[in-house]
């Protein structure tokens, strides 16, 4: 039991981070505005969660210019993918154990 709980990752505890990771698991590069639209949150709120995930090395960021407009896109990193899968598996086994 203890071992399972240790696999629940604190980084994914917030609803918004769970949402961000879920979107990235099934899409390749996702741009900021798409994420904002999907999660229905403010720029600042989204940016701070993305920054936190990026600092932990769970997602990667790239900036491009489309014409003159900058576009920031994000992609899940290998570590992020593995940890998120573990997190989901831990959630599932905790539910099944109770």
């Amino acid at each position: 039991m203890k071992e399972i709980i240790s696999k629940l990752n604190k980084a994914f505890e917030s609803r918004i981070r769970l949402g961000i990771m879920s979107v990235m698991m099934v899409n390749d590069w996702v741009d900021f505005n798409t994420l904002k639209q999907l999660l229905d949150i403010t720029d600042g709120n989204l940016a701070s969660h993305l920054k936190a995930l990026e600092d932990k090395g769970l997602i990667k960021m790239k900036k491009q210019f489309i014409g003159r407009k900058p576009r920031t896109s994000y992609q899940v990193s290998e570590t992020g993918r593995n940890l998120f899968v573990q997190h989901i598996e831990a959630l599932e086994s905790l539910i099944n154990n109770q």
């Binding site: 769970l18 990771m21 879920s22 979107v23 996702v30 539910i95």
Partner: peptide
């Protein structure tokens, strides 16, 4: 436990909605 079920539901929902 119900929060965890809710979490999983939300993950699935977001994956569907975004893809």
């Amino acid at each position: 436990n119900s929060k965890k079920i809710q979490d999983l539901k939300e993950i699935k929902d977001m994956m569907e909605r975004s893809s």
